[in-house]
Amino acid sequence: MKVLSKVLTLALLAFGLTIPCYAEKIVVEGSTTVLPIAQKIAEMFMNNDPDIDISIRGGGSGVGIASLIDGTCDIGNSSRPIKDIELDKAVTNGISPKANVIAMDGICIIVHPSSSVSALNKKQIKDIYAGALSNWKQLGGSDEKIVIISRDSSSGTFEAFGALVLEGGKVRSDALMQASNQAVASIVSRTPGAIGYVGLGYVTSSVKAVDVDGVKASKETVLSNKYPIARPLFMYTNGTPKGLVKQFIDYILSPEGQKLVEEEGFVGLK
């Protein structure tokens, strides 16, 4: 019993002593698109300085911004700009969200590898998704129904796609709405007549990326603004970043951090 209480006291003491070392803790939450970047950076960051505790969570752009507004996270990841309604809420809560662009993301149009179509223009993509074109024959392909795969209408990727390609138009209602980039890629790879769209980082050899407006999707074309379907990725902070949050974002923007961004399949800013 005596031994036990001694051990307990020691343990408590040790625990009490370690707490001040972990005083530096930040929470990063939000977009699943930005998640792999945040994870990789946090890993490297914590390796460089073991006294730091960075907690990373997904949830989606909406969740990231909502948590920032509620003050439950320090950095809210988002693949879309903040909305007016969210901004109003932030102001009410005394939070002033600041957008930090950390990388670019190109949205690739992908089809099944067996498809004979390898280039489309934005108008054609829009017509396919709106329902005006429904057979690959109409696009110079084989006589096959087009199976439309889309991201869920509330995802950041959909929002970017909707703004950049559909220009506010609706996706036909029988499109298969999927909850993640991986789900879209995996369905397209298994469905001969399918078309879908995913972030540049999710294009694998099991799907075929088509050229858009004659431009091949690549890091170079996204950064040079030649590729028409590209978007910035954000990390929202409360006001100008300070302390550890500033270090974290500075690290991402450093050459070393941008290299990690590229390794995750996104497009670095330089």
Binding site: G62, I85, K89, D152, S154, A179
Partner: peptide, 24 residues
């Protein structure tokens, strides 16, 4: 033989990205 979207799937897929407090 057609794709469908049951209620549970809609909630699970969309809740994470819906702006909090909005009509969606």
């Amino acid at each position: 033989l057609e794709p469908v979207r049951p209620m549970t799937a809609a909630i699970a897929a969309e809740m994470g990205e819906a702006p909090m407090g909005g009509s969606h």
